[in-house]
Design a protein around this nucleic acid. Sequence first.
RNA 1: GGGCGAUUGGCUCAGUGGUAGAGCACUCGCUUCACACGCGAGGGGUCACUGGUUCGAACCCAGUAUCGCCCA
Length: 860
Amino acid sequence: MVNIPEKPSLTGIEEKWAKTWQDAGTYSFDRTKTRNEIFSIDTPPPTVSGSLHVGHVFSYTHTDCIARYKRMRGFEVFYPMGWDDNGLPTERRVQNYFGVRCDPSLPYVADYTPPAKPDAKKQDPISRKNFIELCEQLTIEDEVVFEDLWRRMGLSIDWAQTYQTIDKNAQRVSQLAFLRNLARGEAYQSEAPTLWDVTFRTAVAQAELEDREVPGAYHRIGFAPTENPANKVFIETTRPELLAACVALVAHPDDPRYQPLFGTNVITPVFGVEVPVMAHTLADPEKGSGIAMVCTFGDLADVTWWRELQLPTRPIVGWDGRITSETPPWITTRSGKERFAAIAGTTSFTAKQRMVEVLRESGDMMGEPKAITHPVKFFEKGDKPLEIVTTRQWYIANGGRDPQLRGELLERGREIIWHPPHMLVRYENWVEGLNGDWLISRQRFFGVPVPVWYALDADGNPDYEQVLAPSEAELPIDPSSDVPAGYTEEQRNQPGGFMGDPDVMDTWATSSLTPQIAGGWERDPDLFERVFPMDMRPQAHEIIRTWLFSSVVRADLENDVLPWKHAAISGWILDPDRKKMSKSKGNVVTPMDMLDEYSSDAVRYWAASGRPGTDTAFDIGQMKIGRRLAIKLLNASKFALTLSALSSDQDRTSITAATVSEPVDQALLAKLAQTVENATKAFEEFNYAKALDATEAFFWEFTDDYVELVKERAYGETVGVNTQSARATLLITLDTVLRLFAPFLPFTTEETWSWFNKESIHTSPWPDSEALRALSTQGDVAVLTTATEALRMIRKAKSEAKLSMRAVVASAEFTGSPAMIEHINLVSTDLVSAGSLELITTATASEDAMLTSQIILVEQ
RNA sequence: GGGCGAUUGGCUCAGUGGUAGAGCACUCGCUUCACACGCGAGGGGUCACUGGUUCGAACCCAGUAUCGCCCA
């Protein structure tokens, strides 16, 4: 039964269909299907504490288009949604939003109320438990906002399949995977120099680093050799405040200037500590004076020298980024002790200024500091340069120290099918450049706790060799409130008792397990077997080194497989100046406003026209085109359905090759079959943009040319076989085109589909090109091409004469190759109606002739 | 400094060896019975640059420049 509205419109269709889909369970996952009937997606959990951004709309639309295509291909699509609410962004948002800060030493306060007016300068200190409660409260609010957007955009997610990276299951999976790593020796603790953010007071992993060019200055400082004190050796350093942490001088082994000094000792100025002069190839003869001061620790080169030259550890910077307040034992001279007092307890910034004064006074600094700019390591979320401090941390093996594992992970990377393929190179570059294992412990509050305790000795000091791990059945645990087996709460932090590990794990240590979390690993084995390894991981390219790589590591270590077959990498949204869009630049557009203004399908159209992996400009123009396309689809559907319904005995099942009798109709269906093949091939390569382009090109030709050609025949003053042929072709074409567009324009296609179908278009099968070819008989696409060309000539003549397209043409003569003339003859009746021709004649020219025409309009 | 990608009409982009394309914008028309939220027609590009391969290059190769991203 056909039921067409009088005036089709996009207004209100999002609310209407979003509700229908939810009520009908259109996208709900049927877990009785087996692995090869299922297409599973490892959806990126958005950071809920971040703002909603057009970039979200962009990349999630890409995934949804593929999900919808796969669903129509008959796959049961496992398309869950996660929320990344774990970690530092949430902590910071909670601090600002409520005006609080976490102080783990405070006791829990029941019914705590945050300040009425949050004041960033006077944050209310609260316990860890209170803090985490506020985190949970705020993330739930954030998640509601995200879910509203996703529904409004028409993402075909099964909303029964959601998870949070901080929920109990995620904590359990994260801790369980850690304990398994621990049991296999892949997780270990190590006391080592660690990159340390002094603002957040936490260790930072290699993946979270970035280099920034900052101003600095070389200070030229003289060291007196013990054997020849008058002949000073000058080093140039940007960190004079670390002079007290100096453990050696180092120069390149081939540097003739310093070769005589290797193996001798020098005395540090001011502090009078004797240190060796050593040779190492990492010293750059071109840099400064060619000889460097090694401190524990100024930068990563210091760490290398310290390790490889087996130098002593003499740290002077504490976890708070300040110089230690007690005079270090290796400073033994009286003047050294006095001068250390000048910098004790100060920040490195102040210490640097004071050290420069001291060095000037003592005459150990030559000349003025020489200003330079140089790259310095920062935590990507931090504002102060990283320090390197020696701390005990947890690591997971990731190939950074094990060539065999590294080779294995590189091989895993090559097994992934990358879209686009060149993204593999980023993975390889990253893995090849790893210089250490994955540091996973963080000195933060809102995260998944490291699930271990340590035994305390008789003096109350932790014995880190005695790791007390919970059983798997106990998980998830929080070592700060749970008690290890064999102990009681009274023994916490007591001599002979235990202490909980105070740290949480890196957020990537949890998000690297999203396939396991969403897939029910060790929770729902039946589900896990049906969805894991997953088919597809959609994500952005800048987190290949973090999320993608760490996921490969976890699945490799735990499951000995790749976590997914395909990695679909999306690009960025750029603003019109071709810069990455960001909030600080003030060029962010609110997604919901966009959806309101242009409609969801229009915005999806814009998103889907951005090729996989390609950065795309934010372009309102594309949304306008998308809106126009959606409206055109409504009207074309109304037209095609109205006409086909005139043949009340005709429906899609009764149409056969015999019904489609006219050559131009057959040509259209042949072209449609080609379009289906092209769109299918593009989708199989995850190239939704190409699939959309193919469909759209066909659709506009269909409405602009084909429909105009056959309109009169389809209306059918006298209904004959040729009328039936046109009506059948319109119906078949509409039916097919709607399904081709369905992954991109889910609302509009569902709306028009509902006019003549009971079931949802989104659970209907993807078009079958073979069936279309059968209907088209031996349809020759060239017939349509020639007919279109002839129609354009007629239109052009009228347009140049500034006449209406309905104007009568006295005569039209077409000349062309024999094949073309044959085509014209086949469609001459349609051409006469479409062009209002009074007379049509043809003349045959040579084989390679182009089509030409002589069109005589009626004299006025 | 290394890697990857991009560079095609005013704008956003297709186009992997054979006559340069689409949409928007622009110009000129058209009350046409699906659609004025529309329809038709038109103007506009030495395909970043320099060399090379080829009968033939936007496309393949080498180099240069500019932009972006990732990494040092």
